[in-house]
Design a protein around this nucleic acid. Structure first.
Length: 819
RNA sequence: GACCCUGUGGCGAAACUGGUAGACGCACCGGGCUUAAACCCCGGAGGCCUCAUUGGGCCGUGUGGGUUCGAGUCCCACCAGGGUCACCA
């Protein structure tokens, strides 16, 4: 008997898989109904370094699902690529002093080598890199289609600016108002920027969440991010013929509006106060707030603000209320102005108290006195309007509807919906990204680069460090071009696209990765997509997943796709912690999979990465634990070799359940059942693995079983472990006389073997466990009760007492309650 | 501040719809194999108490209540750790 040598086994099978093209899954040809197609996808890695254990867990999970589905008769697309543009790669390059193109190329090579060494069943024919011109050509092409459709536009906007790094930052690079890299406080700057009009899809992005099978918390995060609020826009007359509009979700409280507040950035804030005695105070306040960061503003203990000296008219009661400017009102939400109802809004209440403004309750619990001592914000059918003119007495929701109706009738307001979602700022003044394919022509303005001139190649520049403007601006030969429309001199756009643009459609490109006429053919993409199972980190719960959904819907509307949601099922896996911290390069606590693979083999590392705990939960990596998975594989190896010595080749699909080995045979069927449900339905990879351990333990404890029974058990264990540990499983399967385990059908449990003719009942007396007994599975209730009473310790506890209740849970327990 | 997740042996965890808490694994202890060690094999184990023994009793899933014959699981309140959003009118 030879020893288990993971390196030899894994090298051998990886060569066979590659030679036989085992992982290649071609697209369906004409006339192929494609009923058996399924698409399993893990989020693609940033090639900013090598793979870490988080990747190992993520991709192993996807591989288990892939291999499992293949053996259940599906053709599974399981591709891989690299999210190669963007800040992670660029920052890595800057750190190492290498050109991003060069360091990215090397990182990709290293990652590819690691992935192959892990034995993941990836269809390498579909491999892509988002930084490759053959890919980003189509990113640019899609950008132009969105531009033509009015879904990409340019406007002046406030962006996050790091004064130290001299660059704009992506929102996700701003942590608590500070630059993620250097820690400097982020400033707001106004720059001409490119946006995608994702807000046009707010309703669909929200409503279609009902149709996907995603974790609740991800759905909730997306809902909150979109932030749809129903309410009304209400007009308040200024008195000079103009008016100011507010958005409110509480039109029922309109009679309680005792003042009015403009955000400092509101276009009319300064103008309204101008000429009056408060003009200087307002101007000072506006200037002061502009200098404060959003964080400072939000963290201020007391709400600040100044009176403008002006009044507006409440449209329902004609009352004149003072107009204030205060920074607790956000310019970017709603209309940048609010009607303040201190009696029913916490923030307005605080402001009113700080500045001595009136607090007038107009909603109260039915039958209760209204109170002006707290902000009372409930507004269900249990609350009624008070002090509200003709609306007094109406339930709050009804009152809101009635007030909107009157405002609409009088043309002073309209029922409306507000969103928290903002348009997606996609331009970056950074080097390592996909160039935005437009030129700026003095005569024609912004002109799209024609499709036949794509891709606009990212020029090779020597100095790609951020300087406050795009490093591309320095590539003068590249920047100076001619206008495709008039032929005159023009300048190329020097901003690049946010990395999230690249990753918003990569899952479509996999279906048709070599197409050089289009990003993909609709026929092929419709055959494979939507992705049946998407797997990745919960950190992408909002941005990537929202953007990808937006792209899918936009491309659907433009006729390029036949589906509206990209990811049917989503699984978000937890992070891996090590020594109490997130395993991350920046924390210096990364465990290299390479070292683990070298010491134990890929199969062990795969197995252990999923044994760590429930896959959706964060898990602590424990060095010693990997020994256990390795030990298990060595035991499995020995068991198979021993079984081969016992009976030679042969792979039975069941064995007679008789003699001393009957329990082993039943256990084997039960294990098939458990593992099938745990992998197939529950994603409980850790417990499936435990079940296989149990089977092998039972095998070891049952030497008296027949060789055939023992072979059935061992062969089944090998077969079931294949999605986790495909190399050793393929090897042992072959040695036992099987062929090509990855093509072998997934084992089926015999339902008859899952029920035994005897069961063990537990007996409780007054809720306490007092004994147990064995009885025939089909025993009648009175026989079960009699047997339960006959258990000596049960009899002792029932002695002298009156049983007032008898409960029988079939197959489980008997419970007696005494009087 | 709001919302979400998590809390079970020394450790990672299991218990799927309320039904024998601690499967599986790590570490540990005892024994075997070995000149020795590694590997491997067999056995043990939540805590406390009790019986000569088979055995039996009490306590035990963050804390306090509740519902139930029965609660790790359901309900209420709270505590701790982590995450997300954070003045969204």
């Amino acid at each position: 008997m030879d020893r288990y040598d993971p390196a030899a086994v894994e090298t051998r099978w990886q060569a066979i898989w590659e030679r036989e093209g085992v992982f290649d899954v071609p697209n369906p040809g004409p006339g192929d109904p494609g009923d058996d197609l399924t698409y399993v996808l893990e989020m693609l890695p940033y090639p900013s370094g090598e793979l870490h254990m988080g990747h190992v867990k993520n991709y192993t999970m996807g591989d288990v699902v892939t291999l499992y589905r293949r053996r259940n008769g599906y053709r599974v697309m399981h591709p891989m690529g690299y999210d190669a543009f963007g800040l992670p790669a660029e920052n890595a390059a800057i750190r190492s002093g290498r050109h991003p193109a060069e360091s990215t190329r090397e990182n990709i090579a290293a990652i590819r080598r690691q992935m192959k060494r892990m034995g993941w069943s990836i269809d390498w024919n579909r491999e892509l890199s988002t930084a490759d011109p053959t890919y980003y050509r189509w990113t640019q092409w899609i950008f132009l289609r969105l531009y033509e459709a009015g879904l990409a536009y340019r406007k002046s906007a406030a962006v996050k600016w790091c004064p130290n790094d001299q660059t704009v930052l992506a929102n996700e690079q701003v942590i608590d108002g500070h630059c993620e890299r250097c820690g400097a406080e982020v400033e707001a700057r106004t720059l001409e920027q490119w946006f995608f009009k994702i807000t046009a899809y707010a309703d669909r992005l929200l409503d279609d969440l009902a149709a996907v099978h995603w974790p609740d918390r991800v759905v909730t995060m997306q809902r909150n991010w979109i932030g749809r609020s129903h309410g009304a826009e209400v007009e308040f007359a200024v008195g000079d013929g103009t008016s100011l509009r507010v958005f409110t979700t509480r039109p029922d409280t309109l009679y309680g509006a005792t003042f009015f507040v403009l955000a400092p950035e509101h276009p009319r804030a300064i103008e309204l106060a101008a000429g009056g005695e408060h003009a200087q105070a307002v101007a000072d306040y506006v200037r002061h707030t502009a200098a404060r960061s959003a964080v400072e503003r939000a963290e201020a203990r007391e709400k600040t603000g100044v009176f403008t000296g002006r009044y507006v008219t409440n449209p329902v009661n004609g009352e004149q209320i003072p107009v204030w400017v205060a920074d607790y009102v956000l310019a970017e939400y709603g209309t940048g102005a609010i009607m303040a109802v201190p009696a029913h809004d916490e923030r307005d209440f605080e402001f009113a108290q700080a500045h001595g403004l009136d607090i007038r309750p107009v909603v109260a619990p039915r039958g209760a006195e209204p109170s002006a001592d707290v902000a009372f914000s409930a507004h269900s059918d249990d609350e009624v309007l008070v002090n509200s003119g003709e609306f007094t007495g109406l339930a709050a929701p009804e009152g809101a509807r009635a007030i909107i109706a009157r405002l609409e009738a009088e043309g002073r307001g309209v029922g409306t919906i507000a969103y928290r979602l903002r348009d997606w700022l996609l331009s970056r003044q950074r080097y390592w990204g996909c160039p935005i394919p437009v030129v700026h022509c003095g005569a024609c303005g912004i002109v799209a680069v024609p499709d036949d001139q794509l891709p606009v190649i990212l020029p090779d520049v020597a100095d790609y460090a951020p300087r406050g403007r795009s490093p591309l601006a320095a590539a003068e030969d590249w920047v100076n071009t001619e206008c495709p429309q008039c032929g005159g001199p023009a300048l190329r756009e020097t901003d690049t696209m946010d990395t999230f643009v690249d990753s918003s459609w990569y899952f479509m490109r996999y279906a048709d990765p070599h197409n050089d006429k289009a990003p993909f053919s609709r026929e092929v993409v419709d055959a494979w997509l939507p992705v049946d199972q998407y797997i990745g980190g919960v950190e992408h719960a909002i941005l990537h997943l929202m953007y990808a959904r937006f792209f899918t819907k936009a491309l659907y509307d433009l006729g390029y796709l036949g589906f509206t949601e990209p990811f049917e099922n989503l699984f978000t896996q937890g992070m891996i912690y090590y020594k109490g911290a997130k395993m991350a390069k920046s924390k210096g606590n990364v465990i290299s999979p390479d070292k683990m693979v070298e010491d134990y083999g890929a199969d062990t590392v795969r197995l252990y990465s999923l044994f760590l705990g429930p896959p959706e939960q964060d898990a602590e990596w424990f060095d010693g634990g990997v020994e256990g998975s390795n030990r298990f594989l060595r035991r499995l190896w020995r068991a198979a070799i021993e079984s081969i010595d016992e009976m030679g080749p042969g792979i039975p699909s069941s064995a007679p359940a008789d003699g001393p080995g009957a329990g082993l045979v039943r256990k084997t069927h039960a294990t098939i059942d458990t593992v099938t449900r745990d992998i197939g339905a529950r994603f409980a990879f850790n417990t499936a693995e435990s079940a296989i351990h149990e089977l092998v333990n039972t095998w070891r404890a049952t030497p008296e079983a027949t060789p055939e029974q023992r072979r059935f058990a061992v062969a089944t264990a090998v077969s079931l472990v294949q999605p986790y540990a495909p190399h050793i499983a393929s090897e042992l399967w072959e040695r036992m006389g099987g062929q090509r385990l990855w093509n072998a059908p997934w084992p089926k449990a015999d339902p008859a073997m899952l029920v035994s003719d005897h069961v063990t009942y537990a007996v409780q007396v007054n809720g306490k466990l007092r004994g147990e007994f064995d009885i025939a599975t089909d025993a009648a209730r009175d026989r079960i009760l009699a047997a339960a009473r006959a258990v000596p310790n049960v009899a002792k506890h029932l002695d002298g007492a009156t049983v007032v209740k008898e409960i029988v849970v079939p197959g489980k327990l008997v419970s007696f309650v005494t009087g």
